[in-house]
Write a protein that binds this DNA or RNA. Structure first.
Lengths: 196, 196
DNA sequence: CAAATCTGGAACATCAGTGTTCCATTGAGA
DNA sequence: TCTCAATGGAACACTGATGTTCCAGATTTG
């Protein structure tokens, strides 16, 4: 057989091809979830046959895609250091980090069924880390205590998605959009009684 | 032929069947744009053959769907009487009216290519009525003058979508979600310097 | 160089969705 | 009751996506 070895190496030609396919899949599927494997292969600059060697079935690709996206999201969460400083600042940092995910963000927002998180009874929402952050914000007085936590999560993701979409189809540069988003975020979630 | 007469009557069995198909299409496609015609027909309680009599091709159904959705959106805009009273109140009224569109809202948000609006160079945003409303809000001092109009539009729709999604997968009753949304809307778009 | 590996194109069977035709049944109105 | 529009099921051809196999060329490695 001419199967690429199953070693999960992080370098070498196999890993590079795998990366190219995953990236192309994110890019393509974020615009159209029902895009064909042929289109993805073309975007990846790879033959359809080769793609089938790395991901025998479409579902295999989707699973790998999900794992990869989750990894990126988790990395963003870690970089944001949600436990440091005032909750409002942590929320802003998280927003910046997630905004950088770009197409991955778009893909996840439009296909929440991909998000694994924790499979128990979690149909689409309630991210423990976000919940904790909002509760901390209520405690330290930097986030609006009147906001329902579930609703706040929904709005947070929607704002993020809105920012990415706006960056896509307005000619405004990304960093400007991000700044608009951060100001809106602060205004929307900040505690009006306290400073910011 | 057993084609339903082409008269665009608003009553009678033909209109009723047509309505049932359009409603089923909105409901089904809002959850999955690539749903098959068979599924739509089943939801509509109609044979696939009958559906092909009303909408010969998939594209015909999509066109009719778009027209129907646009009609509902326009009706919501009219009911909101955007020109009456302070701009902030008008924005709240519009939010309430659009929220009632439910699945139609969801479908349009996820498939902005459906929105006709005005086909010239309008790829996905810039609704003249909304622009005018935000500008009026800047003039009468009830809406935040620092918000970019295009960004504000994007956030407005995202907020609306977030509310509908939250209504779908949280067990909170719709009117509660709507109230949360309206409060967030006021906080996000209101002019902090002035009352509300 | 020689062997092993990786690649991509071609050909193929399969399958689901689509669009069409035909026909038997239903139901409302003349 | 008779008629005719409307319906829905069955059967069919067609298409595009999918998954598989085979092979020849390219690249890497010994």
């Amino acid at each position: 057989m001419s199967q690429p070895s199953s070693a999960p190496a992080t370098s070498g030609p196999r890993a590079r091809t795998r990366r190219a396919i995953l990236d192309a899949a994110v890019s393509t599927l974020s615009k159209d979830v029902s895009a064909s494997l042929g289109e993805i292969a073309k975007v990846a600059g790879v033959g359809r046959t080769t793609m089938h060697r790395y991901f025998p079935e479409r579902s295999d690709l989707l699973i790998a895609l999900t794992a990869d996206a989750d990894e990126h999201v988790n990395a963003a969460y870690e970089r944001a250091r949600l436990a440091d400083g005032p909750a409002s600042a942590a929320l802003s940092r998280l927003c910046q980090e997630l905004f950088e995910l770009g197409e991955t963000l778009q893909l996840l927002f439009n296909n929440p069924q991909l998000l694994t998180g924790t499979p128990w009874e979690n149909d689409s929402e309630s991210d423990p880390e976000l919940v904790q952050l909002f509760e901390r914000g209520r405690a330290d007085g930097t986030l609006d205590p009147e906001l329902d936590v579930d609703w706040a999560q929904q709005v947070f993701w929607a704002l993020l998605y809105a920012a990415w979409m706006h960056a896509l189809d307005s000619c405004v540069p990304k960093h400007t959009v991000l700044n608009q988003c951060l100001r809106t975020l602060t205004k929307t979630f900040g505690n009006a009684d306290q400073g910011s």
